[in-house]
């Protein structure tokens, strides 16, 4: 039954489908109902989101200086007017 109550285990299994909004309507309602009633699963979902958002905003590791210099040298020699091929 699609809108039967979901267990905590099921919440963790469906978390990504929920966040991606790829869930049948009935299941989504059951998911939301569980989240309202269960502070543990609420915490779980928040932690998933927080980790994902922090990754999005974390500074990217910079390339090694030698790599950067090689790319920059290429950029300096690059001619934007030259036709491809």
């Amino acid at each position: 039954m699609a809108d039967a109550p979901l267990s905590c285990r099921e919440i963790t299994e469906l978390a990504t489908a929920y966040l991606e909004r790829k869930m049948p309507r009935d299941q989504q309602l059951a998911f939301v109902r569980h989240m309202r009633a269960c502070p543990i699963c609420f915490t779980y979902l928040r932690q998933l989101r927080v980790a994902s958002r922090a990754l999005a905003r974390a500074p990217a590791p910079k390339p090694a200086p030698a790599t950067r210099d090689a790319l920059l040298a290429h950029f300096r020699n690059w001619d934007p007017q030259r036709k491809k091929g």
Partner: peptide, 23 residues
């Protein structure tokens, strides 16, 4: 989880509950 799919070892707060906090 237990047999009913309930948390046996539930997640607890991190003390970094936002992306800013974690960063």
């Amino acid at each position: 989880f237990g047999t009913a799919g309930n948390w046996l070892a539930p997640p607890t707060a991190w003390g970094a509950e936002t992306a800013d906090g974690l960063l």
